[in-house]
């Protein structure tokens, strides 16, 4: 139900853009105004969300340790899984952000009769997530060829590497295949796995369909219904250099692509997609496991009512005395 609804919403929005791209009066809206509004929403929204997180302090050092602590000098410590230093934390975070270390650990548990609980490898989610995110990043960077003039060498290098197999013309980008395959898997997984289907919200499907629509329209444009690429770049450069104009040669599918992108980036700050920034701030991951060596300060600490020794001794005075235990006051 959630899935169907979000599919319909994305399809309607896509159709809206397709029509908007061909109606003269709406081209500026879809080609200039909405993209600018979306970028502004993204920048302000992301900054706002991050600042909100930053304003809430981390009162306690609650590292989730996934390996041996540093203790006795002869005992081998897990410097990545249970980091003791800032360097260790940095490496742990790098593994987490770049390679999805925690997801790599994923297993699946299955209860068989007996009862016998068995565990198996379960790396597909990790693989698909990694394939999606890296492809997305590379595709994003590749798109810089539309936004930068002259095209920087690293962008060309990346495009060359991505099209390494030189299949067809324009050459097939591997990331285009990977991203669609990965998104397809992630969607299929939400449908197939009853547990994941049960927890999936409208927004989960919405984000997926938005991304599939974005990648799909891009793939259609590159391989099947090519727009005038020079005109596309003129539009993109116009946006970046604040001299916006919509060339007459662009329309249709390109507007679908641009609009879905605008929606995605505008949707970012309001959604779970903020995990891209949040992952850096996760206190269970980005803190060293050196609690006992270095005091962590809680900025909002306040005094609490305690039961002091004096009160305690007074309350149990006779009993302490009868037991012959040492006392402050006889």
């Amino acid at each position: 139900m959630n899935a169907l609804l979000s599919l319909i919403v994305v399809l309607v929005l896509g159709a809206l853009a397709y029509v908007g791209g061909s109606v003269e009066g709406l081209r500026t809206l879809f080609g200039v105004i909405i993209p600018y509004a979306a970028i502004l929403t993204f920048l302000v929204g992301v900054a706002y969300r991050v600042v909100r997180w930053a304003l809430s302090p981390v009162p306690f050092r609650i590292t989730t340790t996934c390996g041996q602590q540093k203790s006795l000098p002869w005992m081998k410590a897990g410097y990545l899984e249970s980091p003791y230093t800032t360097l260790g934390v940095t490496l742990r975070m790098a593994l987490e952000v770049l390679l999805f270390r925690s997801l790599f650990r994923n297993t699946k548990a299955e209860l068989r009769s007996g009862p016998q609980l068995v565990y198996g490898e379960n790396k597909y989610l990790w693989l698909a997530a990694l394939a999606f995110h890296w492809s997305f990043l590379i595709i994003f960077l590749r798109h810089l060829r539309f936004f930068m003039q002259p095209v920087p060498a690293f962008v060309n290098l990346l495009s060359d590497a991505d099209g390494f197999f030189q299949i067809g013309a324009p050459v097939l980008y591997l990331t285009d295949v990977f991203i669609l395959a990965a998104l397809g898997y992630l969607l299929w997984r939400r449908f197939r796995d009853p547990q994941v289907r049960y927890i999936s919200l409208f927004t989960d499907y919405f984000a997926l369909f938005l991304l599939i629509g974005l990648a799909g329209s891009g793939v259609l444009m590159r391989y099947f219904f090519r727009p005038d690429i020079v005109a596309v770049k003129e539009l993109a450069l116009g946006l970046v250099t604040f001299t916006p104009a919509v060339p007459v040669q662009v329309g249709g599918l390109f507007f679908v692509h641009l609009f879905l992108l605008s929606l995605l980036i505008a949707y970012f700050p309001f959604s779970k997609l903020m995990h891209f920034a949040g992952v850096f701030l996760s206190p269970t991951r980005n803190l060293a496991n050196n609690n006992r060596a270095k005091r962590h300060v809680n900025p909002w600490d306040y005094p609490v009512k305690v039961h002091t020794y004096a009160e305690w001794e007074e309350e149990f005075h006779d009993k302490i005395k009868a037991a012959g235990l040492p006392m402050e006051k006889e």
Partner: peptide, 11 residues
């Protein structure tokens, strides 16, 4: 004319 159907692919 920019009118093209999905089935009309590259091949």
């Amino acid at each position: 004319a920019g009118a093209s159907a999905l089935v009309l692919a590259g091949k």
